[in-house]
């Protein structure tokens, strides 16, 4: 068919049939589908809603509910012909052995300390970016910090191993400066684990702090200065209270993430720094019969982490309210 013929055919056709979309909307099966879907606003909404609702219920909530169910059964997987019983014995196991609750409390206290360290480390950085850098350069300097955070957990953990090892860079520099004769054993301690976890989570603290500080108008500080407040007072009475929201969301995020690390404590920690994630993971390496205990421990950890972050946020809200009086 020549070009003219095509053009003539096109112009002869009704306007609605010329384009792909026109042809589609005139196509029989599609018309049937469209009438079916749009018969009533109610049906239209139901068709739109049914898949997402089923998805979040079965895929997002389902795994947690099944974990809860497994944690309450006496044996899993269920052997054929054996009746299943509900039990809380797996939860009780947690309190009976020091080997279980010690890593649990260690995880929570480590996560708290690491979160606090991350906050202390990133607050000045966020402050500098938001208050002392021109908006043009701000994005560039922030991007520079984002690059390493695209790199995966394992690779960055490995990088910390090279930094802190007995023949690592820190020990080399210390030796070269003549400060030490033999290497300091940084690795496989809570220190190396802390450096690693702070390294992995710093960005999740930096971004909420940065956006909170950026929103804060400079005029507030100027007003405080006009009223005679010194630098420290301005920070304590103006900047800090008004960025509590960023602090609270950053801390919550970092706390939740650092309780969930598995590979980093395995690679950077030692026997004396076993965290609860390793305890839980242990139940899933050996043959499946220990799953209910592992599931129960995971539920304990999840509930504890949620309770702690929720009460932390509550305290922060109260602090904020107290300051706006």
């Amino acid at each position: 068919m020549t070009y003219e013929a095509t053009a003539r055919k096109d112009s002869a056709a009704p306007a609605s049939e010329r384009t792909f979309w026109g042809r589609l909307s005139g196509w029989g099966p599609y018309m049937a589908l469209a009438t079916f879907v749009t018969a009533s606003p109610r049906r239209q909404f139901l068709l739109l809603a049914i898949f997402p609702v089923l998805w979040v219920l079965t895929q997002h909530v389902g795994p947690m509910l099944q974990m809860l169910r497994v944690s309450l059964t006496d044996a899993y997987p269920v052997a054929p012909g054996v009746e299943q019983h509900l039990t809380i014995e797996h939860y009780l196991k947690f309190f009976q052995d020091q080997l279980f609750w010690q890593p649990f409390f260690r995880t929570l206290s480590f996560a708290t300390v690491f979160t606090f360290c991350t906050l202390l480390l990133t607050y000045p950085v966020a402050y500098f970016l938001a208050r002392h850098v021109s908006p043009k350069n701000r994005m560039l300097l922030l991007l520079l910090l984002l690059i390493p955070f695209w790199v995966g957990e394992i690779v960055r953990t490995f990088a910390i191993m090279i930094l802190l090892g007995n023949t690592g860079a820190v020990n080399l520099v210390l030796k070269w400066l003549g400060l030490i004769d033999r290497p300091i054993p940084f690795m496989y301690t809570s220190f190396s684990m802390g450096v690693g976890i702070v390294y992995l989570t710093a960005l999740y603290m930096l971004l909420p702090l940065y956006s909170a500080l950026e929103k804060l108008p400079k005029s507030y500080n100027e007003a405080a200065a006009d009223l005679g407040a010194g630098a420290w007072t301005r920070f304590r009475r103006v900047t800090l209270p008004l960025t509590l929201e960023g602090i609270s969301s950053g801390c919550t995020l970092v706390f939740l993430i650092s309780t969930g690390f598995y590979a980093t404590p395995v690679l950077l920690g030692g026997p004396s720094t076993t965290v609860f994630a390793e305890t839980i993971g242990g139940f899933f390496h050996v043959a499946g019969d220990q799953w209910p205990t592992g599931a129960a421990f995971a539920i304990i950890m999840f509930v504890a982490a949620l309770l702690l972050t929720a009460s932390f946020q509550k305290i922060m809200t109260l602090l904020r309210k107290g300051d706006t009086r």
């Binding site: 997002h60 909530v61 947690m64 974990m67 969930g260 994630a277 799953w291 950890m301 999840f302």
Partner: peptide
């Protein structure tokens, strides 16, 4: 429920999926 998977700590999410 939509944002739930993003809030669950890594190890817990992994074993919930495993189960």
């Amino acid at each position: 429920m939509t944002v739930l998977p993003a809030l669950i700590p890594g190890i817990i999410s992994a074993i919930a999926f495993r189960i």
